[in-house]
Simulated scan of single mutants.
Amino acid sequence: MDPEVRPAQAHEWERARRLRLEMLADAPQSFGDRLEDVRTWGRERWRARLASALMDDSALLVAVDVDGVWVGQMAAREYLHPAPARVWLLEVYVTPAHRSSGLAEVLLSGIEAWTLDRGHHRLHLDVHEDSGAARSFYLRMGFVESGRTQPYPLDTTRRELEMVKDLP
């Protein structure tokens, strides 16, 4: 049975924690946290982190298996400043067992619909320069590199590349 894709819920902070720890162990350069730091976070920090992802300016879609385990997620946030307002794709992850299953495409479709519902026709993201599989996925999904880069926050000798996708 395919995982169910739906919005995350505020009480699911423990599921969010489990998946975040997996994400950081699996792809440490792809996210802005260090696994050793995140392991020390307490319950209230995890609840606040999830609550932030569920605010009105944000979307957090999760893929949930039949046992209730999160096996993927994708988030977006609308940033009003600096102008013009933009929507950024964030927190993209699918567990290894569900990769190449079409799940990432389903999650992205939901985020694109949310972006359009917010009145935006462009989706932005930053991807680590060494994340070849992620970059390939984004290119396949219609994103293009904008030419803008910035230092990767956890290692400023490395870069993050901005990619954008125009939505219909």
Rank of each mutant, 00 (worst) to 15 (best):
P28Q: 13
H124Q: 05
M141E: 05
D166Q: 11
E78P: 09
L139R: 14
R6E: 08
V127T: 00
R158D: 05
H124T: 04
A16G: 06
Q73R: 08
P82Y: 07
Q9E: 14
T149P: 03
V94K: 04
T115I: 10
I111T: 01
K165I: 01
R135L: 05
P3N: 12
E105P: 01
A48T: 13
P96H: 10
S136R: 06
L21A: 01
L154R: 07
W70H: 08
L154Q: 02
A83Q: 12
L139M: 12
D155T: 10
H11I: 14
M141F: 02
G147H: 08
H120F: 12
G32T: 11
P7S: 14
E145Q: 11
P7L: 05
V94A: 03
E14P: 12
L125V: 00
S30P: 12
A10C: 14
A97Y: 08
L139N: 09
L103I: 07
R45S: 14
T149E: 09
R15M: 13
A48P: 05
H128Q: 10
D117A: 11
A76G: 12
Q150D: 02
L90F: 04
Q29F: 14
S131K: 06
P3T: 05
D33I: 14
W46K: 03
A63V: 01
P151M: 06
L54N: 01
L116S: 06
G32N: 13
G132L: 12
I111C: 00
H81Q: 13
A25I: 11
V69M: 11
A51H: 12
A104G: 02
G147Q: 07
G42R: 11
D2G: 06
L90H: 04
M141Q: 11
P84N: 14
D67I: 06
A48R: 13
L167N: 10
A133F: 02
W46I: 08
W88I: 12
P168L: 06
R39E: 15
V62A: 04
A10V: 15
M23N: 00
F31M: 05
P151R: 10
D33K: 15
E12M: 10
S136L: 05
E4L: 14
L116R: 15
S58V: 02
R140N: 09
H11R: 15
Y79S: 09
M74E: 09
S101P: 03
M74V: 06
E129F: 02
E36H: 13
S30F: 01
E145W: 07
R39G: 15
W114M: 00
Y93F: 05
D65Y: 14
S52A: 15
W114N: 00
L21K: 02
D117I: 08
L21E: 00
L54K: 02
V38N: 03
Y152R: 04
L103S: 04
W114C: 00
F143D: 08
A48I: 08
H98G: 03
M55A: 15
A76R: 01
R6G: 01
G142N: 11
P7Q: 10
L80Q: 13
E22D: 07
G119L: 13
L89V: 11
D33L: 15
